[in-house]
Computed example of a mutant assay.
Amino acid sequence: MDWLIAIVLGVLQGATEFLPISSSAHLRIAGELLPGAEDPGATFTAITQIGTELAVVIFFWRDISRIIAKWFGSLRGTVAKDDPDVKMGWLVIIGTVPIVIAGVLFQDLIRDQLRSLWITATVLIVFGVILGLADMLGKRVKTLETTTYRDGLLIGVAQVLALIPGVSRSGATVTMGRALGYERPAAAKYAFFLAVPAVFGSGFYEAYQAFTEPASIGLGWGPTILATAVAFLVGLAVIRWLMAWISRRSFAPFVIYRIALGAVLLVALSAGWIEAL
């Protein structure tokens, strides 16, 4: 049964990680609804995100490898420090600092209290509304090349909210990007770049913790690795679809979905059909 649950959770992780609807919320809810399952936990979630982030690296490989090469080149003096790719490298580093600090300071909070389904349901609705407003009212004039260090840091601060199941990493960062006036593809692409060091860092740290404390991984290593592989394959397809979607359409369907899911979850909690923790 654990292997089947792992496949389902892997599909969920891959399908929802890049959409602004919160993969951690869907894994948390699925843990309550699937027969024989339970909350997969922060460790399982972080490890499976390695799979989806690997999909990001492969899909944007040309961009990411070029940015890394030029950033190191600027340190050696072989690439101009004002090169756009060098700047993007610094933007990702600066934008990653807030979530690293928050992740270290609030470990216990992330693992326990913030996983309450009452919180998940509430933030699904609240941040769904915020995303809708930002997407509708954003000026849509800034491109990825015009990203400033101030904006990069602000989007990085928004990424910290992704530590709360229900907010969504892409949802929080894209919302901030749209609020600052960036085009949808630009906001999404920077959000993808920004997530790479944060997700890999968190995932490999949690994997190390799981080796030292095997009970923390929940389903066990075999099913977790399977879920990570499934998440990678599904995630790769979803990235391609999402980038095509946002180049022509708004985030409105995701906003509606978030609000509806949050409302259904609140009803289920109020009726006692599922437990918050």
Results as ranks from 00 to 15, higher is better:
residue 127 F to K: 07
residue 25 A to P: 03
residue 9 L to W: 05
residue 35 P to C: 06
residue 228 T to I: 06
residue 35 P to F: 01
residue 112 D to M: 06
residue 233 L to Y: 13
residue 40 P to S: 02
residue 110 I to R: 14
residue 125 I to C: 10
residue 185 P to Q: 08
residue 98 P to H: 09
residue 151 D to Y: 04
residue 266 L to S: 09
residue 170 S to P: 09
residue 151 D to R: 08
residue 212 T to N: 15
residue 33 L to K: 12
residue 114 L to P: 10
residue 155 I to P: 02
residue 7 I to M: 11
residue 112 D to P: 00
residue 268 A to S: 13
residue 231 A to W: 01
residue 130 I to R: 11
residue 225 I to V: 13
residue 218 G to E: 00
residue 16 T to Y: 04
residue 68 I to S: 07
residue 141 V to S: 15
residue 65 S to A: 10
residue 222 G to I: 13
residue 38 E to A: 15
residue 6 A to M: 10
residue 202 S to Y: 03
residue 124 L to N: 01
residue 228 T to R: 12
residue 71 W to V: 02
residue 139 K to Q: 15
residue 188 A to N: 09
residue 120 T to M: 08
residue 184 R to G: 02
residue 242 L to M: 14
residue 141 V to E: 15
residue 64 I to H: 06
residue 152 G to L: 05
residue 173 T to W: 08
residue 35 P to W: 04
residue 66 R to L: 14
residue 15 A to I: 10
residue 155 I to Q: 06
residue 3 W to Y: 15
residue 250 S to G: 11
residue 153 L to V: 10
residue 36 G to K: 13
residue 213 E to V: 15
residue 194 L to G: 02
residue 176 M to H: 01
residue 74 S to I: 03
residue 251 F to I: 11
residue 194 L to S: 02
residue 45 T to P: 05
residue 31 G to V: 02
residue 178 R to H: 03
residue 105 L to R: 08
residue 11 V to I: 14
residue 20 P to G: 03
residue 159 Q to R: 08
residue 271 A to F: 12
residue 115 R to T: 00
residue 167 V to L: 02
residue 132 G to C: 09
residue 244 A to P: 01
residue 14 G to F: 04
residue 17 E to L: 01
residue 172 A to F: 02
residue 228 T to W: 08
residue 76 R to W: 06
residue 208 Y to H: 14
residue 26 H to L: 09
residue 246 I to C: 09
residue 84 P to D: 00
residue 171 G to H: 02
residue 172 A to Y: 08
residue 89 G to Y: 05
residue 210 A to I: 12
residue 40 P to R: 00
residue 72 F to G: 12
residue 114 L to A: 01
residue 69 A to K: 14
residue 49 Q to Y: 10
residue 210 A to D: 09
residue 254 F to I: 04
residue 19 L to T: 04
residue 143 T to K: 14
residue 151 D to I: 06
residue 166 G to H: 06
residue 16 T to N: 05
residue 218 G to Y: 00
residue 161 L to A: 09
residue 95 G to S: 04
residue 118 W to C: 07
residue 238 V to S: 09
residue 189 K to I: 10
residue 137 L to F: 13
residue 54 L to S: 14
residue 227 A to R: 08
residue 235 G to L: 01
residue 108 D to K: 15
residue 70 K to F: 05
residue 232 F to V: 10
residue 106 F to T: 10
residue 22 S to F: 01
residue 219 L to M: 10
residue 29 I to T: 04
residue 102 A to E: 08
residue 253 P to L: 07
residue 176 M to T: 06
residue 256 I to K: 15
residue 169 R to L: 02
residue 244 A to M: 14
residue 182 Y to D: 03
residue 230 V to F: 04
residue 71 W to T: 14
residue 168 S to Q: 11
residue 190 Y to W: 10
residue 138 G to E: 03
residue 143 T to W: 11
